[in-house]
Design a binder for these strands. Structure first.
Lengths: 110, 110
DNA sequence: TTGACACATTCCGTAATGGGAATATAATAG
DNA sequence: CTATTATATTCCCATTACGGAATGTGTCAA
């Protein structure tokens, strides 16, 4: 079984750093494809293909206006990532506490 | 330029769902490889390889004890993902607000 | 209609994947 | 030393990805 498709879920889609860049760029406001091409310094076909991946997993939406196509981020779709990462938040505390304790023991033993 | 290696960064490493499962399993406490194999119902070699990927990006650490190798999660390493996802948090508000406004306009126009 | 513009899709080559089987390595027991 | 247990590594392979070049599609202007 080879690697999962980039379009199989949000986690695979955001594995590519260019796509993460695109999302950050689109977070604040919608943009036509040409702007994204210019911003990323990538070829237009590449950008279009990245956008298709992002569309397939619901991370962006598009809107046609005249000859341009405007893309915007669908911020909701990031939630699975956010939630998953957050499940570890409660363990940070523990880990930091352990580090702190170790440091204190070291300090006392001097 | 083909796809980035799974070991190139944390985002690529967690693209695989099995590896996410492993991390969740290791978050609460350290475990020997055998336990992970049993938990995931995957082949032992596969698990070992997944663990190597996770080690390469610093998401897990290992400790040898007799014949067993115990793995534990390094929760700190998840931070890039958490932080990146959180950059969009402030936009949720806006998006939810827009949805709400649209609903209200619809309501009024009835 | 023709041309131009903005974007999408297809084709190509290179490189890496994850699983299973087989094999190698490390550590302990006897 | 030998056998056994617990992991790691290697080999194999079908599959997919990315970027660039070329080409297709859709919209508007003249």
């Amino acid at each position: 079984m080879p690697r999962a498709a980039t379009t199989s879920d949000v986690f695979n889609a955001i594995a590519e750093s260019r796509r993460r860049d695109i999302l950050v760029y689109l977070a604040s406001c919608e943009r036509p494809v040409g702007d994204i091409v210019e911003e990323l310094g990538l070829g237009q076909p590449s950008v279009s293909k990245h956008l298709k991946v992002l569309r397939d997993v619901g991370l962006v939406r598009m809107r046609r206006e005249a000859r341009q196509v405007f893309y915007r981020m669908n911020v909701e779709a990031i939630r699975p990532v956010h939630d998953w990462a957050r499940t570890f938040e409660r363990y940070w505390r523990h880990q930091l506490m352990r580090v702190k304790e170790r440091a204190e023991r070291k300090h006392r033993s001097r």
